[in-house]
Simulated assay, not measured.
Amino acid sequence: MRVLVVTEGIGADWLAEAKAREGLDNLILLPFQPFADVPNAIGTGAALVVLLEPDAGVYSVPSKTLAYLCADRPLLGAIPLNNLAAKLITRERRGAGRRAGG
C-alpha cells in the first residue's frame, strides 16, 4: 500500500523527516497541487483522510470534506464528533472505521 500526502509547511517537513528516519518508501509526499489537478489527486485514493482540529467549530464542514464525499471514497476521519462534518459523514455512512469510544 502507498500513502500519498499532499501538504506543505511544518507538517510536510515532519513527514519528510519521519520518512527518511523510518525508511518509509511507501510514503509519497507532494506539495499542494494546482486547483485544476485536485480532482485527479483526490480520485487516486482508495480511501481519503480528513483531519479537523477541535476548534474547527461545530458548524464547520471544510471544502475538503465535501470534495472527498463527492469523490465517492471511504473517509478516515479524525474529527470531533460534534462537528457538522462528522455528522454528515456518519449520516451518509461514508466513514471507514469506528467512532472513538464506540
Rank of each mutant, 00 (worst) to 15 (best):
98 R>V: 11
23 G>Y: 10
22 E>W: 11
65 T>L: 00
102 G>N: 09
32 F>G: 01
77 G>P: 02
79 I>T: 01
76 L>Y: 03
42 I>E: 03
34 P>H: 10
28 I>T: 04
97 G>K: 12
5 V>M: 04
18 A>P: 05
61 V>R: 02
81 L>A: 14
91 R>K: 12
88 L>N: 03
92 E>T: 11
11 G>K: 10
69 L>T: 05
37 D>P: 00
36 A>W: 13
38 V>L: 12
34 P>W: 07
45 G>P: 01
70 C>N: 13
62 P>L: 05
35 F>P: 00
56 A>G: 05
78 A>H: 12
50 V>E: 01
6 V>H: 02
14 W>V: 14
21 R>G: 09
79 I>A: 04
20 A>W: 08
8 E>A: 11
37 D>A: 10
90 T>M: 12
3 V>Q: 12
4 L>N: 11
74 P>E: 04
20 A>F: 08
91 R>H: 11
72 D>Y: 08
8 E>W: 06
77 G>A: 12
87 K>P: 07
102 G>R: 10
8 E>V: 09
81 L>V: 02
53 E>A: 15
66 L>C: 04
9 G>F: 11
83 N>F: 02
46 A>R: 15
14 W>T: 15
82 N>H: 13
7 T>M: 06
84 L>Q: 06
20 A>D: 13
64 K>V: 03
52 L>T: 03
16 A>K: 09
73 R>A: 08
26 N>G: 03
27 L>W: 02
41 A>T: 13
21 R>E: 15
25 D>Q: 14
49 V>K: 01
18 A>G: 10
63 S>W: 05
51 L>P: 00
22 E>D: 15
83 N>H: 09
38 V>A: 09
77 G>I: 02
81 L>Y: 09
51 L>S: 08
72 D>W: 08
8 E>M: 06
12 A>I: 04
102 G>F: 11
62 P>S: 08
1 M>F: 10
68 Y>C: 05
95 G>C: 07
65 T>Q: 05
53 E>V: 04
89 I>Q: 00
82 N>Y: 04
19 K>Y: 06
89 I>F: 01
45 G>C: 09
27 L>C: 06
94 R>T: 06
33 Q>K: 05
16 A>V: 01
62 P>Y: 03
63 S>P: 05
